[in-house]
Amino acid sequence: MPANPIQLRVNGKSVLVSAGTVLAAAIAQAGVTKFRRAVTGGPRGPLCGMGICMECRVTINGQTQCRSCQTLCEEGMEMRTDE
């Protein structure tokens, strides 16, 4: 259990992460590897980790197509990956 944990939800599942965790890492901590479905259906996850490749796009608080690798987790965030 991290100190001063931040609680957020990944695909409806509650996840506790420590401060300074990026959303992509929180998703990985929740055991999710598929961040999005590609145009032809294949599974995708982060590639560049630096906000360039757009492979880590998820839905954050209802907003689709958000990069998860450059955004820090905040209390109460709601994230969805393509399932």
Partner: peptide, 15 residues
């Protein structure tokens, strides 16, 4: 993942 990218993600909590 890119090596640098993975390193960056790990620094920010990627397990």
């Amino acid at each position: 993942v890119g090596p640098g990218g993975l390193q960056a993600l790990v620094k920010n909590g990627w397990p």
